[in-house]
Write a protein that binds this DNA or RNA. Structure first.
Lengths: 238, 238
DNA sequence: CCGCAGGTGTCATCGAACTGTCATGGAACT
DNA sequence: AGTTCCATGACAGTTCGATGACACCTGCGG
């Protein structure tokens, strides 16, 4: 279901770019902004990767070996599975802009090299918003707790914290909705997944494990228990 | 007690299914789980039934005579009255899942035939929970008292106040209807629940507990007692 | 192949918080 | 004064969350 997914996982970008240096730069910047990145170096590989990884958005270079960006885009539009997949076409300045737009390829947006990363990200977010998948932040924080999604790392006061997979997702969810109280059922939906059958009481146990992990000796307990209601990530206890 | 359906009185499901046998099976199982069931056999009837019966959730078959499930869903999304109505789309296994997701119809979830009833119910519950979830902004206030529903917090003059579950619901109800006097019976219905047998005098006790909690030393008592009538949230005393 | 370690879900138990009821005293009304 | 109604403190029963224990699973390296 769309929402749980977009809340927990970050949007996946397929970067189709044959120039390795540029691809690396893009990966670095996009991951910093909270995207996950897949790469393809030519048009054929791009089509394969789309089927395999089902990205949320494609960044497509105009000039490519094997199969041009135009052609890749057309093929994407031809298949019903990828008809609505957002595509941003990357063109070189030398290309005549009118020509590019005139060739009705079906790309959702265009950007010309060289481009600022900020501008690119802005356009990507705009498109993703339309497709209802706004990227999560790459780095979440609350009080003195920090979570680096890309590196899969959690710290409290610069002290590294080890969490199991479930506790990690639980904390991630809390960090995305600080101060808000969630029932056990809501947490099960969001963190475990909808049709997983798990006892609501199991949430208690994971809350305890999370507390044990992130609350050092004489540190504030940032998980608030609300009787008959649920749990919240919060600084002020009671 | 197999926690039938969350809180509120039995939710109404509209089952849109042209295959009579399946519809009957669904009705049987859903009713056993505490749902009320309405049926529609084609797309056009589905739209009519939605207006007439105002269901809490719709179970919508993909392939339908008269008007396809896709189209029904789109029309539901178009009207503001049904824009947020939860819809679960039922698709046959033969349909390509990617196709289904690619055609962005606005369904809230998908399930493929054949499906287990348990999985279906789990998804329905999840959606209903989300539909009933507290809006992020929800905040009630009266005089110098503030209640944040999402965070489950109460303050008076920026002083945090701790309330037990019942006192919390009681104050919530008062905040939703300030200045109005309620009899003990009305309060029991609204705060405790319609079919709970509790002595009316018990309300007195909870009123006292609420007063004790929210009235600091030399602060105005915001709960007014009306002899022979009941209680109200009010600033002007006696 | 086996054992091991980390991770996960369930359960029984304990204690604290909460709840409903009553007895008593006092205030308000007639 | 007498009656009615509410406030209050006490209390026993219940509910609910915290906790420790444990069995199962899965992946990994010996």
């Amino acid at each position: 279901m769309p929402d749980t997914v977009s809340m927990l996982s970050r949007p996946l970008v397929l970067v189709v770019e044959d120039e390795a240096a540029l691809a690396t730069m893009l990966r670095y910047n996009l991951e910093k902004q909270g995207f996950r990145v897949e790469e393809a170096a030519d048009g054929q590989e791009a089509l394969n990767r789309v089927s395999e990884t089902q990205p949320d958005i494609v960044l497509l270079d105009w000039m490519l070996p094997a199969l041009s960006g135009i052609e890749v885009c057309r093929q994407l539009r031809r298949r019903s599975a990828t008809r609505d997949l957002p595509v941003i076409m990357v063109t070189a300045r030398t290309e005549d802009q009118d020509t590019v737009r005139g060739l009705n390829t079906g790309a959702d947006d265009y950007i010309t090299k060289p481009f600022s990363v900020d501008a690119l990200i802005a356009r990507m977010r705009a498109l993703l918003r339309r497709a209802n998948a706004v990227p999560a932040k790459a780095r979440l924080a609350f009080h003195d707790i920090t979570m680096d999604l890309a590196a899969h790392r959690v710290q409290r006061n610069d002290r590294p914290i080890h969490l199991g997979p479930t506790e990690f997702r639980l904390l991630e969810f809390f960090l995305q909705h600080p101060r808000r109280v969630f029932t056990r059922e809501e947490l099960l939906d969001a963190v475990w997944g909808r049709d997983i059958h798990v006892e609501p009481r199991t949430v208690d146990v994971h809350i305890r494990r999370l507390r044990k992990a992130i609350n050092g000796p004489n540190e504030l307990d940032v998980v608030r228990t609300v009787r008959a209601a649920g749990y919240a990530l919060d600084t002020e206890a009671r």
